[in-house]
Amino acid sequence: MTDHPLDNLDRRILHLLQLDARGASDTDIAAETDVTGTTVHNRIEKLEDEGIIVGYNPEINYEQAGYPMRVLFICSTDLSDRSEMAESALEVRGVVNVREMLSGEENLHVEVVAETTSEVKQSTEQLDGLGLRIVSSNILAEERIQPWNHFHQDIIGEPDTLSETAPDEE
């Protein structure tokens, strides 16, 4: 986290980028926030530089792309090894997502996509080879994702400080 909190403009920009990062230009976001495109551009650069925005990733329909198998492996590892195991799991063929749980026995969730069950088996063997204990596995049917719009309740209602900008941003 940065030394200074996000203001309402930052929160609004983050929300609008979550809605459509690819299609939202600085000008489009500026129109939604009552600031200039330059201000939006500067704010986005600042959010990237501070590590708040860490990337722009497409949402992929793996089944449409020819990978109908999506499996969620619930794994267990020693908490002291969790981060290292998460990094290693990313190297396994087919792994698209690894989530570290804060605590508990089932502390690593690994999502694998594959074309066939034999490819899922290969991924299972590789995860096991890393030393992960696979507690359970589930075939994923559907996933629904939505932008988190609760950065601050003020951005939902009337803008009260959205147009506040630092003098050097214009």
Rank of each mutant, 00 (worst) to 15 (best):
S80P: 08
T124P: 02
C75G: 10
G55W: 00
R11M: 13
A31F: 11
T161S: 10
S83P: 03
M101V: 14
L6S: 08
D28N: 14
R82D: 03
L19P: 02
S163F: 00
L17F: 02
G129Y: 00
A166I: 04
A141L: 01
N138S: 15
I156Y: 02
A89P: 05
I156A: 12
A86C: 10
Q126A: 15
E50C: 12
R133G: 07
L108P: 10
T38Q: 12
E45Y: 00
Q146N: 09
Y67K: 10
S76N: 08
D78N: 12
E169H: 02
Q153H: 15
G66T: 09
S163E: 03
T161D: 05
D81K: 15
L47T: 12
P5G: 07
Y67I: 02
E32R: 13
L130Q: 06
T39I: 11
A65W: 00
A24W: 00
N8W: 01
D20G: 12
R93Q: 09
E158N: 14
Y56F: 15
N57Y: 09
G66F: 01
I53L: 12
I155M: 01
I44G: 06
N107D: 10
D78H: 05
V135N: 11
V120S: 03
A114E: 05
F151D: 06
A31W: 04
F151T: 08
R144D: 15
D26P: 06
V96A: 05
N61G: 09
G104H: 05
R22P: 02
G104P: 07
P5T: 03
G37H: 14
V135M: 11
T2D: 12
L72G: 08
I53K: 13
S163C: 02
